[in-house]
Design a protein around this nucleic acid. Structure first.
Lengths: 138, 138
DNA sequence: AATTATTTGCAACAATGTTGCATTCGAATA
DNA sequence: TATTCGAATGCAACATTGTTGCAAATAATT
């Protein structure tokens, strides 16, 4: 458990610190996504705001977590599954944001549909953001 | 031209003011998307920051423009095409963001592929954000 | 245990977004 | 066209969010 988290950090050439362990732990016990503010609350302001920003930034760079584009200017982060944690980068993500409760779901098992782009456009990454009502709010 | 803009405003029960006309004009002569900061610059700070915020908000409410979800926490707005301006709301958008020049394209003519959601999830809206290299940067 | 490199917290700052209120302006009416 | 009334604007003050430099603390290495 705790060891598992340390493993992930070491595997990514990151030193094992309190904040990194705690934040990664939070992501693991959350099946949805977390925003910076969520993390601040859930850690009871134990860590400096700056530390959280930098930790998130580091995790994104290492491919441990990824950002989720949202229309309302709130950056959310979610744990990358399997392939991501081994270093391979996802190029596609499907996310579902509930209009009611605001929970963000990573639908990793869903296939991203092919988008046919106009001539001259080259695709590197595709994000699909679906919003509506989730299974808990229906 | 100028009349056309006034028409759009009136059609949406909005009084025709300087800032609204100017901002709508900007969107019309931009084929990409605009962020709040872009509008501030392009209007030479003629209008108060607050006015721009409120104008954008109003336009979104009326369905004249729509927001584009981005992963980097920068809200961008783009003009809604045809159907939108007549009051009907789009439920799907495909956008392309160039990794090189940052330009955001609305690919209104592209069909949004169907996403098959797990049981209990109801879709209201879907956004596809494709990133890569655009036709001008290839 | 000592050294070194990294990470953290603090402070200060910059950017972004929000709210209340007085003034100004647009639209409708006479 | 002048008047009236509701809506939009600008200003000020504030809240939130994100960034940077630097000294102190901490983790990893020897």
């Amino acid at each position: 458990m705790k060891n598992e988290i340390a493993e992930i950090l070491k595997r990514n050439q990151l030193s094992v610190t309190g904040s990194r362990t705690k934040i990664l732990e939070l992501f693991q016990e959350t099946n949805g996504a977390l925003a910076h503010a969520d993390i601040e609350k859930k850690t009871d302001e134990t860590y400096d705001r700056v530390t959280i920003y930098r930790t998130l930034q580091t995790f994104v760079e290492k491919g441990i977590i990824h950002t989720i584009p949202t229309a309302d200017n709130s950056v959310r982060y979610a744990l990358c599954k399997d392939e991501c944690t081994t270093g391979h980068h996802h190029d596609n993500h499907v996310h579902f944001i509930c209009d009611d409760c605001g929970t963000t779901y990573c639908l990793d098992n869903i296939t991203v549909p092919e988008v046919i782009l106009p001539k001259g456009f080259t695709q590197k990454r595709a994000d699909v953001i679906v919003s509506g009502i989730c299974k808990n709010c229906e």
